[in-house]
Simulated assay, not measured.
Amino acid sequence: MVQLSTALAVLAASTAAAQNATLRYMPFGDSITEIVCWRSKLWNKLQSTEWASVDFVGSGRTENNCRDTKYDRDNEGHSGFLAINIANQKQLVGWLQKNPADVITMHLGTNDIVQQSKSTTDIIAAFTTLVKQMRDSNPRMKIVVAQIIPLGIGNYNSKVQQLNAAITPWAQQQNKTESPIWVVDQYTSFSGSSDNRDGIHPNDGGDVKMANIWYPALIKAFEAAKADKQKLL
């Protein structure tokens, strides 16, 4: 009887823990993740849903003059960083060790194109490495990858379009049942001139657009991550 009572208590405790486990979401990218306000708008959009308790995670807590003192600022956006360097230097490995995640969004490639004119092939190879690093951290990681926003400076958008065109077939190839990849189109409805404040970073209207594009895919990712946790019951 004592053993049965103990077993039931352990089961009840593990059930409660699984039910109450908070989902951890990492916004990951460069300055278009770090020094912008779409994260604030996304967090607020989630507050009227069952996902209000999702924990945004990351080493950064930059305040971006978003006029919002409430939102969860944690993120892993790094201004000026290249996808290729993050992958090759295994920086994401360390970030995920410090802040494990169930769900991650990735908007990367802008600096690879603008700063060093890296090829689509090299950027996509870096994406493959980054996805492997995500899955090494969490084999059931839910991943949302952006086709990146257009630029309002220089003549870079042809390369942006080339990268974006490669992302969907790459994601299909990398997709796994236990660790799905969703691709969101942050390019098509976004204006590189009127939705950017400086030709690179979104203004308030651009932030709204980005948050609205991330949102449906993130909800699917949260649902999948929650289902994983419920399997522990």
Rank of each mutant, 00 (worst) to 15 (best):
D207L: 03
N196V: 05
A52I: 10
Q116P: 08
D72W: 02
Q116T: 13
I213D: 00
N65G: 14
A211T: 08
I123F: 06
G94S: 10
P216L: 12
G206F: 00
V2Y: 09
M141W: 03
G154M: 07
L233Q: 11
N65P: 02
K226P: 00
D30F: 04
A9E: 11
Y71W: 15
M210R: 03
L151Q: 10
K41Q: 14
Q116R: 15
G154I: 05
P202G: 05
T33Y: 04
G77C: 02
V36D: 01
A221Y: 01
V160M: 01
A225N: 02
N88S: 13
S53K: 11
R67H: 13
F81Y: 14
V10L: 15
S53I: 08
L151E: 06
D185L: 08
L4Y: 07
P27Q: 06
A21T: 06
P216W: 11
S189M: 13
A87P: 00
V114I: 14
S14K: 12
Q174L: 10
W51L: 04
S59K: 08
Q147W: 05
T69N: 13
W38E: 03
A16Y: 11
L11G: 03
Q97C: 11
A126C: 08
A52S: 15
K70S: 15
K45C: 11
V10D: 12
L46G: 00
A52N: 13
P169K: 04
L23V: 06
E50C: 10
A52Q: 14
T69D: 13
A171V: 06
N20E: 12
D74F: 04
K142I: 00
D207R: 00
F222A: 00
S191I: 04
V2M: 08
M26P: 03
S193A: 15
Q115S: 13
T69Y: 13
I200E: 00
T22I: 09
S193D: 10
R39S: 04
I35W: 01
K132M: 07
G60I: 14
T49A: 10
D136A: 15
